[in-house]
């Protein structure tokens, strides 16, 4: 589905009216499921995720596979609801894309949680994706972080993630000033379309189909990258600005999530 993103260079506004460095609305709640040890509900734009945490508890008997017993095992299950996308698709459980997604969340959490405090135990995270509109991995990671905070599992810092893209010169052909002489004149000193590859923050689903993007996850507001996944082809020279914008976005996501946690804590204290 070719999509016309070339209008970006004219107004410097994206399809949904955001500027290049604006996040979508992030709405989050924690302790949404009473039955779970920890739970959260997160919306990043139109991407909606519910996360529940069970444990740390004794692992299933005869549980197979990796990890030494001196550290907590983390299991991540991701469910993409049939109605999450535009068209209804039946996904098999052994979907490799899904397996990769849960592997990413799991190994990112392994380095963020203090796993050595819970030997011989298992932590199970279940992520339900209710609606999909870009930044799926980022939403999963952020929702997992909130649910783990709610569950009271000790961690070094918030694990936050955010996606960043680049308006590629190839996809959005830079309108030469001769093609639109009127605009070039009005633009004055700002040369319209000259800077055809602006970095963009937090892409929505349509932009993700069109532009190269990556997902960055950082620990707290440090500049250290825990997760970096890029799946689309783009020139190496774009990576730096995309990373910089992504890391900056992570810091803002962290503030938002921190606000949610603090508000929830305050409410809990008042109710007691």
């Amino acid at each position: 589905m070719p999509l016309d993103t070339s209008t970006y260079s004219l107004a410097l506004l994206r399809l949904d009216g955001r500027r290049w460095n604006e996040l979508r609305r992030i709405h989050a709640q924690i302790s949404t499921q009473a039955a779970a040890d920890g739970s959260s509900y997160l919306e990043m734009g139109n991407t909606k995720v519910i996360c529940t945490v069970a444990g740390p508890a004794e692992g299933r008997r005869g549980a197979v596979g990796g990890g030494s017993q001196s550290e907590m095992r983390i299991e991540v299950e991701i469910n993409i609801a049939g109605f999450a996308g535009v068209e209804r698709k039946k996904r098999s459980r052994a979907d490799r894309r899904n397996a990769e997604l849960s592997h990413t969340v799991q190994s990112a959490l392994e380095s963020t949680l203090l796993t050595h405090l819970y030997p011989h135990s298992t932590l199970t995270l279940t992520l339900h994706i209710l609606a999909q509109d870009g930044a799926l991995l980022a939403a999963c990671i952020n929702a997992a972080t909130l649910a783990l905070v709610d569950a009271g599992v000790p961690m070094y810092d918030y694990l936050v993630a955010c996606s960043a893209g680049s308006t590629s010169a190839s996809a959005a052909a830079p309108p030469s000033s001769s093609a639109i002489p009127g605009l070039g004149g009005i633009g004055g000193n700002r040369s319209v379309g000259a800077d055809a590859d602006d970095p963009l923050l937090d892409l929505n689903g349509l932009e993700e189909q069109e532009l190269p993007y990556l997902t960055v996850g950082t620990q707290g507001d440090s500049d250290k990258v825990v997760v970096c996944v890029m799946e689309t082809r783009c020139h190496a020279s774009r990576l730096e600005e995309m990373l910089a914008v992504g890391i900056d976005g992570c810091k803002r996501v962290r503030e938002i999530l921190d606000g949610v946690v603090r508000a929830h804590g305050k409410k809990m204290i008042e109710n007691e």
């Binding site: 990112a108 392994e110 990258v225 825990v226 996944v229 783009c234 190496a236 990576l239």
Partner: peptide
């Protein structure tokens, strides 16, 4: 010089600059 894919699935945090030197 085109990057087709980058995957850092987790593990210990690294500097963003070191990702650039990797590429």
């Amino acid at each position: 010089g085109e990057i087709c894919q980058i995957a850092k699935y987790g593990g210990s945090p690294i500097d963003a600059v070191s990702l650039l030197t990797c590429t």
